[in-house]
């Protein structure tokens, strides 16, 4: 069993590890190790359209993170706190963006934006449609994560705060939010990662002037496979893995 697991992990990680390794390989042919170099990173950094795509990705991910957290936390608290008609339907609709195939949401938003979204907007408004698309599929994830935490929050805490004179808003700020803070941070990191990582939905909503890093990597791969792509990929891998590991830390953090 142990050797089986070991073989499995080798199989799982070998492609990724080699991809990262060859971003440092001093060989264009990508197969035989010729010595350590960072020249492909320098080359990638000098590639203006690549840097632009990277900046776009970070901008989109940051805006998406803030909006997704606001929407996701509000929705999670709503479903936790209230009972109302069609609660189950609302709950189900919230999880739909998570379960339907990405390509379906992608083409739906493509058609929608093609009809309604103005073209030729100035940066960063030109990223608006991608941001909207990302918020649509990331905020339900935030809601799911925050609800996991809310499930163990004592409902009487907020009532107690209001009994002591706090308004709804004060009770939420002073008592509820501190209770769910770790899950909000985890949700924010996951929203950031999902946005930064997304290819399919962005592929359908991105215009020629609003390319993101994954979409750019895709077109570079089509053109030619070079260590430069490996370098760009490695940067993306490092950022998302760090964010994901942090997110999981916060998600499983014990309450103080």
């Amino acid at each position: 069993m142990r050797s089986f697991l070991a073989a499995f992990f080798v199989m799982l990680y070998a492609p990724i590890v080699t991809l990262v390794a060859f971003s440092f390989n001093d060989s264009k042919r990508n197969i035989v190790w010729r010595g350590f170099t960072t020249k492909y990173y320098a080359k990638a950094a000098a590639n203006e359209s690549l840097i632009e795509a990277f900046a776009n990705s970070l901008t989109i991910a940051a805006v998406n993170m803030v909006a997704s957290v606001a929407l996701g936390v509000a929705a999670a608290v709503l479903l936790w706190r209230f009972r109302f008609p069609f609660r189950h339907a609302a709950d189900g609709m919230m999880s739909l963006p998570i379960v339907i195939p990405e390509i379906c949401l992608g083409v739906a938003l493509l058609v929608f934006f093609n009809q309604w979204w103005p073209r030729d907007l100035a940066w960063p408004l030109s990223l608006g449609n991608i941001i909207i698309a990302h918020i649509t599929f990331t905020f339900p994830f935030v809601a799911v994560i925050v609800r996991g935490r809310l499930a163990s929050v004592n409902r009487e805490l907020e009532k107690a705060a209001m009994d002591l004179g706090a308004s709804e808003w004060q009770a939420m700020r002073d008592v509820l939010l501190p209770q769910i803070r770790p899950s909000i941070i985890a949700g924010a990191l996951i929203a950031f990662t999902l946005s930064l990582d997304d290819f399919v939905i962005t592929y359908f909503t991105a215009g020629p002037n609003s390319i993101t890093l994954p979409v750019k990597i895709n077109s570079m791969v089509r053109f030619s496979v070079t260590p430069e792509v490996n370098a760009a990929s490695t940067v993306l891998i490092v950022i998302t893995v760090i964010a994901a590991v942090l997110a999981m830390r916060f998600q499983t953090a014990r309450r103080a």
Partner: peptide
């Protein structure tokens, strides 16, 4: 009057001591 406007206070069954 909402609870925060009443000169009435409550000790909750769970005590609801703010954990943080």
């Amino acid at each position: 009057l909402p609870p925060n406007k009443r000169p009435v206070n409550m000790v909750f069954q769970s005590y609801a001591v703010f954990p943080h």
